[in-house]
């Protein structure tokens, strides 16, 4: 039986890389990413599962990293916003967000993008309502929602054309 209360070594698989961090059980995945691994692309908004800024993919599925204990992610594949651009080239969802003006302050954007990426990985041809449903759990206080939906539609089309 695994027992831990003081710091223990936890192995994470983040963005395809094995990482080992020494953490207390109370460390959330969000703090582990931002503080222990320096991956600050994932944002801390409410820190209580209400805003969606901290959305990352765990085994390909969007979850709130603020309500996930890092110690429970041992052996799980975690993907963050930092994994999307490849060789200096933006991911089609990132490109579409800029092209469609889908952000103002940008704080919710990494979470929005991760939710949309998860949707497009599963469903390459989503409807507008599929997209709205996919980003239900991501709040945007600037109110960029219409352009977020447009960006997702545009990214889906770009991905179908091969990126």
């Amino acid at each position: 039986m695994l027992k831990a209360s003081a710091k223990s070594l936890v192995q994470l698989q983040v963005n395809g890389q094995a990482q080992e961090i020494s953490i207390e059980p109370r460390r959330t995945l969000l703090d582990a990413l931002r503080v222990d691994l320096g991956l600050t692309g994932t944002k801390k908004g409410c820190d209580e599962g209400t805003c969606g800024a901290c959305t990352v993919l765990k085994e390909g599925k969007p979850v709130y990293s603020c309500l996930t204990l890092a110690i429970e992610c041992e052996h799980s594949r975690i993907e963050t916003i930092e994994n999307l651009a490849k060789d200096g080239k933006m991911h089609p969802v990132q490109f579409a967000f800029i092209e469609q003006d889908a952000l103002q302050c940008g704080f919710c954007t990494p979470g929005q993008i991760m939710s949309i990426k998860a949707l497009l990985d599963q469903n390459p041809k989503p409807t507008e309502s599929d997209i709205k449903r996919a980003v239900t759990g991501n709040l945007c206080r600037c109110g960029a929602y219409p352009n977020i939906v447009k960006a997702a539609l545009s990214a889906a089309e770009r991905l179908r054309r091969g990126g």
Binding site: M1, L2, A4, S5, R26
Partner: peptide, 15 residues
């Protein structure tokens, strides 16, 4: 969050 001990139970009886 206050710190705590984390245990992973392998079965119902143990939990």
């Amino acid at each position: 969050m206050k710190n705590f001990e984390y245990v992973s139970a392998p079965n119902l009886a143990s939990a």
